[in-house]
Design a protein around this nucleic acid. Sequence first.
DNA 1: TATTGTTATACTCTATAACTATA
DNA 2: TATAGTTATAGAGTATAACAATA
Lengths: 145, 145
Amino acid sequence: MPDLSRDGNAAAVNSLRSAVMRLGRRLKHQRVDESLSPTEMSVLGTLARCGSATPGELARKEHVQPPSMTRIVALLEAKGLVRLEPHPDDRRQKVVSQTETAEAMLEESRRKRNAWLAGLCEGLDEDEWAKLRAAAPVLEKLAHL
Amino acid sequence: MPDLSRDGNAAAVNSLRSAVMRLGRRLKHQRVDESLSPTEMSVLGTLARCGSATPGELARKEHVQPPSMTRIVALLEAKGLVRLEPHPDDRRQKVVSQTETAEAMLEESRRKRNAWLAGLCEGLDEDEWAKLRAAAPVLEKLAHL
DNA sequence: TATTGTTATACTCTATAACTATA
DNA sequence: TATAGTTATAGAGTATAACAATA
């Protein structure tokens, strides 16, 4: 547990915040399919992580109201990106899962963003890249805390 | 210029992309004023960096059409966050600049996000934090490349 | 009676097209 | 004639309220 009141640590946190937000925005702009709304993309990402979920669970995870999720799921289904099946235990609920098409699209999206980021990293020297590479697993841990 | 085809470097880029996007999303959720739309916040950030700009310049920087910027600027003015003045050389144009209120709000926003991120960093050990701190200036350089 | 999901409807944000004023 | 900004109008995305089916 680092002492963040120590000199320089606050400045480092400020740098991290600023850089992460800016890089995150720029990465977000690197899209594979312009026809998908941000929330639709996010739902596909959630399904990729969770495997499957009910519309209600998706609405909670995406911080969206249930009627909005109804619409989003219907659009994704029409585009062939998700599949809807009856819930095994509760006939009120449905189970949403991603299709192979969606999986392939997400993989292509990751590839495109990785390529863009790698291109940006070309502008670093060996020493800078070494520092960044050493910090990558730490950033990943932080992102999941 | 690092060799990104080398073993492990591609994995590091993938970690960075994933972590930066996730952290960026989580940071974005830490808002000070829920009543401002993402673009309104972004315009204030742009004005903070540039000092002042015409509506046309703002529309180009925010990747928004001119009529949308007209509306955004009008809303921000109504909220007391920007000031509109006539352009000194061209009577067609206007000059938009942020008010002291907006400046204070942005500072509070940065403070809140820094505090949230610092809280997250408490979950790291000294060694991890040292790596992250060393990488902070590199990330910042990358974000501005 | 409570919960899941849907339908109906309204609001917010952004876009396009047409207009005004100035260069 | 071209450019900066605005007005009028339409489309996408989300919200709230009311409803249906099931627990």
